[in-house]
Simulated assay, not measured.
Amino acid sequence: MRRKQTCGAYARSTGNPCQAKALSNGRCKNHGGMSTGPTTVEGKLAVAAATSKRMAAGQRKRALEGF
């Protein structure tokens, strides 16, 4: 039987380990699993270019319909 892998990060206040399901790196999304996004200027420009390209492909109209 395969057990689910838990995060195991210890809380400062209680000292108990986190029981959340771990991602592939061994920690849960709250303890080091999620990306923080681009931090360099080049990375932010790349994301902006990709977003504007995607929005130009017809999603702009769908995205703005709710406003």
Results as ranks from 00 to 15, higher is better:
Met1Thr: 09
Arg3Leu: 15
Gln5Val: 12
Gln5Met: 13
Gln5Arg: 14
Thr6Ala: 08
Gly8Gln: 01
Ala9Trp: 00
Ala9Gly: 00
Tyr10Pro: 04
Arg12Gly: 15
Arg12Ser: 15
Ser13Met: 07
Ser13Gln: 08
Ser13Thr: 13
Thr14Cys: 04
Gly15Asn: 11
Gly15Ile: 13
Asn16Thr: 14
Asn16Trp: 12
Pro17Ile: 05
Cys18Thr: 01
Cys18Glu: 00
Gln19Ser: 10
Gln19Lys: 10
Gln19Ile: 09
Lys21Asp: 10
Lys21Trp: 09
Ala22Leu: 02
Ala22Phe: 03
Ser24Asn: 07
Gly26Trp: 00
Gly26Ile: 01
Gly26Asp: 01
Gly26Leu: 01
Gly26Asn: 04
Arg27Pro: 01
Arg27Tyr: 07
Cys28Gly: 01
Lys29Asp: 10
Lys29Tyr: 11
His31Thr: 01
Gly32Ser: 10
Gly33His: 02
Gly33Phe: 00
Gly37Ile: 09
Thr39Arg: 12
Thr40Pro: 02
Val41Asn: 12
Val41Ala: 15
Glu42Val: 13
Gly43Ala: 05
Gly43Ser: 04
Gly43His: 02
Lys44Tyr: 09
Ala46Met: 06
Ala46Ser: 11
Val47Asn: 03
Thr51Gln: 13
Ser52Trp: 00
Lys53Thr: 11
Lys53Glu: 11
Arg54Pro: 00
Met55Asn: 02
Met55Tyr: 04
Met55Ser: 09
Ala56Asp: 06
Ala56Trp: 02
Ala57Asn: 03
Ala57Gln: 03
Ala57Pro: 00
Ala57Asp: 02
Gly58Cys: 07
Arg60His: 07
Arg62Pro: 00
Arg62Asn: 06
Glu65Val: 07
Gly66Pro: 03
Phe67His: 06
Phe67Leu: 11
Phe67Lys: 07
